[in-house]
């Protein structure tokens, strides 16, 4: 795929060229949206919105990583979805402290609906990880999804999130620590190689 040529054509209004880019990136965008939103239907909406707005403001794309540019758009679309969801909240799960403080007791882990046994039975590993990701504040979620799941480096993630490098670094560290705590609770689901050590002090 000749990406620069396709982008150039798409900039001139060639929808076919842009659709080839869509086909190439749709899995990545959908995955990102799904990991951030945790809902397949919402993720699909956000992905579609992201591609539409990407095509509309394609002229504002000035080189650099097209992937990061697309990821920024989809992340913003996800934030919009989350804001919309917040306006009409379906679940009151907001475990985050606003001032970035480390939470000593991760009370968001307490799931009133399903016991750990039930979780083991019903949730796959992926679902367990997804639950942990969704327990993170949206900003942390986006950082961890972009770097650890989509494999962006810090610079790309900073560009995609329009945040300073230091912010990305710090948020990623916090997100990883929280995820570690969360994943420990579902360690039975993890493959042996990923088992977190019992004796860890963190």
């Amino acid at each position: 795929m000749d990406e620069p040529a396709l982008i150039r054509d798409a900039k001139h209004g060639d929808l076919d060229a842009f659709n080839r880019l869509v086909l190439h990136y749709q899995d990545m965008l959908y995955n990102t949206a799904y990991r951030v939103l945790g809902d397949p239907a919402l993720a699909a909406d956000a992905t579609q919105e992201a591609f539409i707005s990407a095509f509309r403001k394609l002229k504002s794309y000035r080189g650099g990583s097209f992937k990061a540019w697309l990821l920024r758009i989809v992340t913003n679309a996800c934030y919009d979805e989350l804001r919309r969801k917040k306006r009409r909240p379906s679940t009151p799960l907001e475990p985050l402290t606003e001032n970035d403080e480390e939470m000593e007791a991760p009370r968001w882990l307490a799931d009133p609906n399903a016991s750990p046994e039930k979780q083991v039975e019903t949730f796959e590993l992926e679902q367990a990880i997804q639950n942990c990701i969704e327990a993170l504040p949206p900003d942390f979620r986006a950082v961890v999804v972009l770097t650890d799941i989509q494999g962006l480096d810090y610079k790309e993630a900073a560009a995609a999130l329009k945040k300073p490098l230091g912010t990305v670094k710090s948020r990623l560290a916090r997100a990883r620590l929280r995820l570690r705590d969360c994943l420990q609770a579902v360690r039975e689901l993890l493959p042996a190689a990923f088992r977190l050590e019992e004796g860890s002090t963190l």
């Binding site: 929808l15 842009f18 659709n19 869509v22 086909l23 749709q26 899995d27 965008l29 959908y30 995955n31 799904y34 990991r35 397949p40 699909a44 992905t47 579609q48 591609f51 539409i52 095509f55 992926e126 990880i129 997804q130 990701i133 961890v144 650890d148 799941i149 494999g151 560290a173 990883r176 620590l177 995820l179 570690r180 994943l183 993890l190 190689a193 990923f194 977190l196 050590e197 860890s200 002090t201 963190l202």
Partner: peptide, 29 residues
């Protein structure tokens, strides 16, 4: 130990299965 924890967290996340897009998101005029 802390480094190992972080590494494990990252490894789990990296192993997260990629979902296929449920449909094509190609645009119509």
């Amino acid at each position: 130990a802390a480094l190992d924890d972080l590494r494990l967290s990252r490894a789990v996340l990296r192993r997260t299965p990629q979902r296929r897009a449920p449909r094509n998101f190609t645009l119509s005029p």
